[in-house]
Each structure stands twice: as structure tokens, then as C-alpha cells.
């Protein structure tokens, strides 16, 4: 059984079909990239998978359970227990320190544990920045805090919507390297990206166009390491 399966999922805004009968399967432990032009429905799909939004029609099977018809409260529980979210705009709470931002996810999930939160920050190389406020961190550092927050509760699936969209190459590489670590630990990853270099690192890439799956490619020689196209 796949960890995640979308069956004929559509999202309709007025007469705009943001998603149009999409069928996708994601296996447990898989690292999947999603690409496509702007407006092709990538974020719409991620929000539906992430239980932030509801599909107009179709089934979304997460762990074999259809979440399409669940109530708002049930979707909140699913987000809390099973999903780790990373956004392009970082989204940290401005008045909490880095470690408190990580602990926030623990707080809603179960119990805040400062030691564990510090370990998670250490994993993303920010042990020394734990007491800093988001405004005192660089964009790359902020996004790494978000990664630490997304992985703190050991979610079944991490969804990242353009996680490197606002980062320079060096920080992009650090984030991709962290995805590789998570992948090696068995975490399922779905990463939306505009950057072919980031997509190529994944095991498989799905390309959306006008709300439909246009095509998909499998990375035959997957290493999990980024290969920068350097211009000589």
C-alpha cells in the first residue's frame, strides 16, 4: 500500500480547474519532486495533501485512510500528527526564539521538550543560534529552523512548497543536504520546486500543467546530492 494516493482529485475555483483529475501515488520513504509552471496547481495540491485545504472531488488516501471528507477538526489532528510543513516564506513566529519556534510544534503535538528541540536545531547546524529571534537570523538560517520544526515530531511525510525559493545557492545546498539526511532516515519527502537542480536530486519528478499531471521522470542514477551546473 502506498503511503499517499490521490485518486481523481480536482479542485475547482468557480470555473477554474486548479487541479483536474489528478492521480498520484507516493511510496513510503520516497523522495518526490513536483514541478510545473506558475499556476499549474502545485501549491493547491500540496495544501490538499497537507490537510490545509479540501479537494472539490476525489479521494486522498493517507496511510490508507481517505482524508477528503474529514471535518476541519479531524484535518487539524492529521496535520498535527502526520505532516511536517515547510513553506517558501519560512513562517516563523517573530516573538519566539529559534528553539521556541521548534518547541511550538512539539507543544501542539504532545509536550514541549527543550532538549529535543535543541538537538533538532543542532541537526540543521543551528545549535549556536537557539536563542536568536527570527529577525536576527539570515533567510537560510530561518528556513533551517523551519526544517527542524517540520521534523521534530517525526511526521510520516514532509511537504515542502518551494523551500529553496528564497535562498541563495549555498543555503539551497544545505537544505537539500538535510533532505538527503531525512531521506536516508526513511522520511517521505514531497518537494515542490521551480529549480531543476533541486528537482533532479529527488528519486522521481512529477510535472503538473494546467492542473493535470503532464508527465513524470524517474531519476535512474539517484544519489541525493545536488549537482550544480557551473558555467565555466
Amino acid at each position: 500500500m502506498s503511503l499517499l494516493e490521490l485518486k481523481n482529485v480536482s479542485k475547482i475555483y468557480g470555473d477554474l480547474h486548479a487541479l483536474d483529475h489528478v492521480n498520484i501515488k507516493v511510496e513510503k520513504g520516497e523522495w518526490l519532486a513536483i514541478m510545473g509552471p506558475s499556476g499549474s496547481g502545485k501549491s493547491t495540491m500540496m495544501n490538499i495533501i497537507g490537510a490545509l485545504d479540501k479537494a472539490t472531488e476525489g479521494e486522498i488516501l493517507l496511510d490508507g485512510e481517505d482524508i477528503a471528507k474529514k471535518s476541519a477538526a479531524a484535518l487539524t489532528d492529521i496535520r498535527r500528527d502526520k505532516i511536517g510543513l515547510i513553506f517558501q516564506q519560512f513562517h516563523l513566529v517573530s516573538y519566539l526564539t529559534a528553539v521556541e519556534n521548534v518547541m511550538l510544534a512539539q507543544y501542539y503535538h504532545s509536550l514541549p521538550d527543550e532538549k529535543e528541540a535543541l538537538e533538532a536545531l543542532d541537526r540543521v547546524g543551528l545549535a549556536g543560534r537557539a536563542k536568536h529571534y527570527p529577525s536576527q537570523l539570515s533567510g537560510g538560517e530561518q528556513q533551517r529552523v523551519c526544517v527542524a520544526r517540520a521534523l521534530i515530531n517525526y511526521p510520516e511525510i514532509i511537504l515542502a512548497d518551494e523551500p529553496t525559493g528564497n535562498l541563495d545557492e549555498a543555503n539551497e545546498e544545505i537544505v537539500v543536504e538535510m533532505f538527503n539526511k531525512l531521506h536516508n532516515e526513511g522520511t517521505t519527502l514531497v518537494v515542490v520546486t521551480h529549480n531543476p537542480e533541486v528537482a533532479e536530486v529527488a528519486q522521481r519528478t512529477i510535472v503538473l500543467r494546467n492542473g493535470r499531471v503532464d508527465h513524470e521522470t524517474v531519476n535512474e542514477n539517484f544519489t541525493g546530492k545536488i549537482k550544480h551546473i557551473t558555467l565555466m
Partner: peptide, 11 residues
């Protein structure tokens, strides 16, 4: 921030 808290599973 409210949206973020909800995304993290705040009821």
C-alpha cells in the same frame, strides 16, 4: 501567525 499555528496542528 494564526495560520501557521493552525498548520502546526493548533485546534
Amino acid at each position: 501567525e494564526i495560520g501557521l499555528r493552525k498548520a502546526l496542528g493548533a485546534g
